[in-house]
């Protein structure tokens, strides 16, 4: 357990030291932009799916209400 924590702490220290240098390099910068753009596209698609589902649920509820009303009549 303690060994694990030491590894995590050392890893974090190493990451903190070399991360700025890595992030400022051109290929890494491009990769980051591409990743974030992909994430944003995924998020937009996910939100579209949610909204489409919301519209479909509205259609289903409206149709069910109509069926019930028609049956009652």
């Amino acid at each position: 357990m303690i060994k694990n924590r030491i590894i995590i702490a050392a890893g974090s220290f190493l990451l903190g030291t070399v991360a700025p240098a890595i992030l400022t390099s051109e290929p890494v910068h491009k990769a980051c932009v591409a990743t974030v753009a992909a994430g944003m596209r995924a998020n937009a698609r996910y939100e579209n799916v949610v909204e489409e589902a919301r519209a479909q649920v509205g259609d289903i509820v409206a149709e069910a209400t109509f069926v019930n009303t028609a049956d009652a009549e």
């Binding site: 939100e47 579209n48 909204e51 489409e52 919301r54 519209a55 509205g58 259609d59």
Partner: peptide, 11 residues
């Protein structure tokens, strides 16, 4: 009226 702006639809 219910608007679904992202998918360009309205009920």
């Amino acid at each position: 009226v219910t608007i679904f702006p992202r998918i360009g639809s309205l009920a």
